[in-house]
Design a protein around this nucleic acid. Structure first.
Lengths: 338, 338
DNA sequence: CGCCATCTTTGAGACGTTTCAAGAGTGATC
DNA sequence: GATCACTCTTGAAACGTCTCAAAGATGGCG
């Protein structure tokens, strides 16, 4: 049938394969005359350079992979977006993959990306994953752990100072007058979650005049939040917390909805704080106070760190930690009034 | 240095390359003895099969690509999720890419995926893209257009009956008593948007006793919704619509927020309907009535249709169209009371 | 012991690309 | 006319895999 590949193009255009390759990769080295004939041949047979051939020869691709638990969580979607922006600026494509919090799929994608010889890997995960990333790294694929501080100094990471986030949330709740605090989230085996709790707990202990309840909810989605809200509404009002710190915005929004519909006034009777400051925190009917960890520089930091590792540059500090800010909005501002 | 590739493994294990290949792809054909030696060799040199080599030889990968405008829009994130679930069931991986509504990046990713010889492509796009997909298809990469009905019968697509969605929204608003209707969205050049408008418009015309205003807002995000809400609040109350149909949930939520904070009572004074029925419609403090187009079968339909095309199966109807349902919630239920 | 069937193993060859050293062409300068 | 500097062009070799026809082992059976 029709000729294929760079070879077919060369034949039709009446040039050598090397010339076609040059046309594709170093157009400046090819005379206008041949360039034109080559392009015509390309169009004629619908030639598409095979990445496989190229990669086989070169040994690398120009793609980085980002494995996240779940892009339907706006927190990860927003990270993905900023990562993608920066990657494009630096001339590489990003392939996203969802692990759906399944260790098995995480491993699948890890393997798939490794076999595709991606330049490097960005990984957000709920679970412990450093050991696996270490294996992958040993075999030649570098990675940056995103959203979770790595333990090993061999494993670069970009994360948020969650202890500080927890402290800020706690201080704010105490300052506006809450005394029966609750933190909602889980599992505690996640360092991110444990740290937020630790920060909050520390502040409460220092204050001395407030209580802190831990409400375990590992489904950190709107649905999970609604379940928590429902459970709280079932309690007599005096046993309900008056200040809630949810470990992410989704949880907070779910709780907020159920409790407001149940007649609780927010923020007058109940102050509530989320985490991550996603678009939905700001966009809620009662705008949600939230701890903002990322900012515009996040994607840049993540991608640039990965490039540093890929290019074997000397890295001064493998663990980049961003300090979060508390964004105060209507869900807490005005507590106690009315 | 260390031997690499299947060849290196073979050498270390003291077997032929073909045996290693068999171990990798047809383990049943290899004796336990050699299998063990091969595995040992693999571990020893940290061998990872090169996808490039495999793909070069085989001519295909086991990956499908999904290009969406933006996974931070929960609508696309939820589609991505259901697609991924089904793809995993069928044994292929999904690589996601965000076009960020930029035609250039759309083309970039289209080319990248094509060069990677993906099995097939799923594409959601805001703009006209059929012609480009036709080129890609002609060169051998099949695709399914997602969320937009294709014109050509050569181009398979899975979409929602948006005219019906618009009609249902309109009927509901009229039934509960709204008379000054508004549709918010844009641009009209998008068939999805135009169809929703057409359906709504048709119902309003039939009713005869209501007005329909078109509010052009092409930034179909929470932010865009807030802008619209702010503009509406600037009007004297009697000039504000009493029933709003936003072309997606994000817009609706933004409008809802600003107007409620501005003192408008929802649903008593204003009924508002979104579209897509994302998790945030249900999770809003005032749960949002919304048109639900997708359901669990969506990802299955999309992926299965793609496989039909990939495997050159006879396709009875290339354009699969789902009928949407109206999910009535608190943002409309109770209009006019109080 | 010879034959057959079955199960394993072998290794050459091809997939499509890029590189690179070497060759060809052109024009300018001595 | 010879030499030089330059720009273009050439084609073989190599990257790592899978396939396939053929060869080798093994064991059963007459």
């Amino acid at each position: 049938m029709t000729k294929t590949g760079i070879r077919g193009v060369a034949e039709i255009a009446g040039v050598a394969v090397g010339t076609v390759s040059n046309y594709l990769n170093h157009p400046d080295r090819v005379s206008a005359d041949k360039a034109q004939r080559i392009q015509a041949a390309i169009d004629q047979i619908g030639f598409v350079p095979s990445n496989a051939g190229r990669q086989l020869r070169l040994g690398v691709s120009s793609v980085i992979g980002y494995i996240s638990p779940n892009v339907s969580n706006p927190y990860f979607a927003e990270i993905a977006e900023s990562v993608e922006r920066r990657a494009t600026e630096r001339g590489v494509s990003v392939f996203l993959a969802n692990s759906h919090r399944s260790r098995e799929r995480e491993d699948d994608y890890l393997a798939t990306f490794e076999q595709h010889q991606v330049l490097g890997l960005l990984v957000s995960s709920d679970g412990p994953i450093e050991d696996r990333l270490a294996s992958v790294r040993r075999r030649g694929t570098p990675s940056v752990l995103v959203g979770q501080r790595a333990v090993s100094s061999e494993q670069p990471s970009v994360s948020i100072d969650d202890v500080s986030g927890g402290r800020q949330a706690g201080r704010h709740l105490l300052e506006i007058g809450c005394r029966r605090l609750a933190v909602v989230g889980g599992p505690m085996s996640l360092p991110q979650i444990a740290d937020r709790f630790a920060g909050l707990s520390e502040v409460v202990r220092e204050a001395g005049d407030a209580t802190l309840e831990f409400i375990d909810e590992t489904d950190r989605s709107v649905r999970g939040g609604r379940d928590v809200g429902t459970a709280l509404m079932a309690r007599p009002p005096e046993l309900r917390p008056d200040g809630i710190f949810a470990v992410n915005d989704l949880l907070a929004l779910g709780i907020l909805q159920v409790m407001v519909l149940g007649g609780v006034r927010v923020p007058e009777d109940l102050a509530i704080i989320g985490y991550d400051d996603t678009a939905f925190a700001e966009g809620s009917v009662i705008p949600l106070t939230s701890v903002r960890g990322r900012h515009d520089g996040y994607g840049v930091a993540v991608v640039d760190l990965l490039f540093d590792v890929i290019e074997r540059r000397e890295i001064d500090e493998p663990h980049r930690i961003f300090s979060p800010d508390l964004i105060v909005r209507a869900s807490t501002e005005g507590f106690g009034r009315g």
